[in-house]
């Protein structure tokens, strides 16, 4: 179940921009870890466990790789741990590397969430808001590509049975044939478009999405949380010395806002799940 999808794509896009913006520019390990947790929990609810495990494994590898390689190239920092080839390896560089790794993996995980929410229909909707023609081109492309691949396979299969040409030669022949066929078909498509009035008036764009009250609510809540977490952000210093700033009430509010912001998809999904179970139990 993926109920987050039911929000208007524009509202969702803004939400993803909020999260990624703070993640990338804050460079704050606490925020990054909270972001990762939020993304993982959301994926856990809506996607299959296997692909999530794969992503997590990939993320751990990236995280380790960046943490280890950063000190090899960056020799800043006060706390020297040891020397390699007369080069200093510092604690600060390790920590910076780890945070950089967190940042990269967090962005990867959020893009995974983004993919779970934004299917082609939602993409086309976003483009349609910019230009209806652009949306049409995108939609036609999405139809064309699988068709093209399918007919290439069919032609190639037939050629394999009939002709005894070598593989490369056969691929080239089949490829040129599929292009010719595609061009022939495009004449029919353009006839069909013309006969349905393409270009007769300024195109409008139809999508099934509306902007509802709950979209407005979602937008307002996420925007407030975003503003709070930007205004009351805490800056970490890594070089030349690690400085973790102390946290008072307002900074805590900033942290809390971002944590809530990143957990929203998970919380929302959980809430809908519980509501569903509750409704079932009443029947």
């Amino acid at each position: 179940m993926n109920t987050l999808k039911n929000f208007n794509p524009i509202v969702l896009l803004i939400y993803f921009i909020y999260v990624l913006f703070i993640s990338i520019f804050s460079f704050n390990p606490i925020l990054l870890i909270s972001g990762m947790l939020g993304a993982v929990l959301y994926c856990l609810v809506v996607s299959d466990k296997r692909s999530l495990l794969k992503s997590i494994a990939a993320c751990i590898i990236i995280l380790l790789a960046v943490t280890i390689t950063n000190p090899l190239f960056s020799h800043n920092g006060k706390t020297v741990l040891f020397f390699i080839n007369d080069n200093r390896v510092t604690l600060e560089a390790f920590v910076y590397g780890a945070v950089l790794g967190l940042c990269i993996t967090e962005v990867i995980l959020w893009f995974k969430c983004f993919n779970l929410v934004f299917d082609t229909e939602r993409f086309i909707f976003l483009f349609g808001k910019i230009s209806p023609k652009l949306a049409l081109v995108l939609s036609m492309t999405l139809r064309f590509i699988p068709n093209f691949i399918k007919s290439f396979r069919e032609i190639n299969r037939t050629q394999k049975l009939i002709s005894n040409k070598r593989r490369l030669k056969r691929y080239l022949n089949s490829f040129s044939a599929v292009i010719t066929q595609a061009m022939e078909n495009s004449i029919i498509t353009s006839d069909s478009m013309n006969s349905r009035g393409y270009g007769s008036k300024k195109r409008t764009f139809y999508s099934r999405f509306r902007f509802t009250l709950s979209d407005a609510g979602f937008l307002i809540i996420t925007s407030v949380l975003f503003v709070l977490s930007v205004v009351y952000k805490t800056d970490f210093t890594y070089y030349p010395e690690l400085i973790f700033p102390s946290i008072n009430f307002l900074e805590a509010l900033g942290y809390l806002s971002f944590i809530i912001l990143t957990f929203i998809p998970f919380i929302y999904e959980l809430k809908e799940g519980i509501r569903w179970k509750y409704l079932i139990s009443k029947i």
């Binding site: 082609t120 229909e121 086309i124 209806p132 049409l136 939609s139 036609m140 999405l142 139809r143 068709n147 078909n185 495009s186 029919i188 498509t189 006839d191 069909s192 478009m193 349905r196 009035g197 393409y198 270009g199 007769s200 008036k201 300024k202 195109r203 409008t204 764009f205 139809y206 999508s207 099934r208």
Partner: peptide
Amino acid sequence: DSQIVTDKVYSELAFGLESLGVDK
């Protein structure tokens, strides 16, 4: 097959009306 323009059934149904500039 080649007469179909777009990737989804609903967008194909909407294609003509969109071209005529009909509102959403």
